[in-house]
């Protein structure tokens, strides 16, 4: 420190340091304050500034510290109460965690089993669609063409051919533009053949999906379809193909009388 401390600038108008209360001299007090506030390049002033910086820093730090924790200020019983609260909360949250985890597991397994169920239902739908004729089908098979310009072939002959194809394992059959299903019927109308009420154009074309070799040989057995048709005076041709598209569709009608029997609940 300086050995000769800087004397505070004494007010020029007021002599003396002014000990004691200044009786009613507010304005001069303000002036004195302002005068002291003026920057003075002394070591003590710089030191005071340093202390002020430290004070401000300490205040801010302490305030932030108090904001952060606050637990240090509490008494023991309050701390015990808070600890109890935290323990209870922890137990409750652990319970919640268990419940949520179990429901999550249930949902996960449910999702996988429902996707399994969806897949099997889709498979079943595809199978039934082919069986009932509501879905187009494709696959290997044969095409039987019967050229019958003289209308010698009867509907009974076509029914025989269809039955023969079914015996040989035909899975989907289309005659002309008609998909053959369980309810398909045949009729002779005015020398032409109707299948399920729809006239079949010449030459008759029967597409069947199944094992081509088996069905072709079933057509060609002695006394079979080919021979009978030829005996009628028409010209049958059997062509095996790697891929046959059956595109005709059968439109389903809801049964009026038949009702499904409810499956016994497992």
């Amino acid at each position: 420190m300086s050995t000769a401390p800087p004397t505070p600038p004494s007010p020029p108008t007021r002599t003396g340091p002014g000990y004691g209360p200044d009786d009613g001299e507010g304005p001069s007090s303000w002036k004195r304050l302002l005068r002291m506030a003026r920057p003075r390049a002394t070591r003590a002033n710089a030191f005071a500034a340093l202390l002020a910086i430290a004070l401000g820093f300490a205040i801010a730090t302490q305030v932030q510290q108090t904001d952060q924790s606050g637990l240090e200020q509490l008494r023991e019983d309050e701390l015990v109460r808070i600890l109890d609260d935290v323990n209870q909360e922890q137990g409750r949250l652990a319970n919640d965690t268990r419940e949520l985890e179990s429901s999550r597991d249930a949902l996960l397994s449910g999702a996988s089993s429902s996707s399994e169920a969806l897949k099997s239902a889709q498979d079943r739908l595809d199978t039934l669609g082919i069986l009932t004729g509501t879905s187009p089908a494709t696959g290997p098979g044969i095409v039987v063409t019967i050229n019958d310009p003289d209308h010698k072939v009867t509907s009974a002959r076509l029914l025989d051919a269809l039955q023969e194809l079914r015996d040989a394992g035909a899975e989907a059959v289309q005659i002309g533009d008609v998909r053959v299903v369980a309810s398909t019927w045949f009729a002779d109308v005015d020398g032409a053949i109707e299948v399920s009420g729809q006239r079949v154009a010449q030459p008759y074309s029967i597409k069947a999906i199944g094992d081509p070799a088996t069905m072709a040989s079933a057509m060609d057995i002695p006394g079979g379809v080919t021979e009978s048709v030829r005996g009628d005076g028409a010209t049958p041709t059997v062509r095996q193909a790697e891929s046959i598209d059956i595109t005709a569709l059968h439109s389903l009608q809801a049964p009026r009388y038949a009702r499904p029997v409810p499956a016994p609940s497992k």
Binding site: A49, G56, F57, A58
Partner: peptide, 9 residues
Amino acid sequence: GLIGGVLIG
């Protein structure tokens, strides 16, 4: 200095 210290803190 006080204000500066608060800001630093």
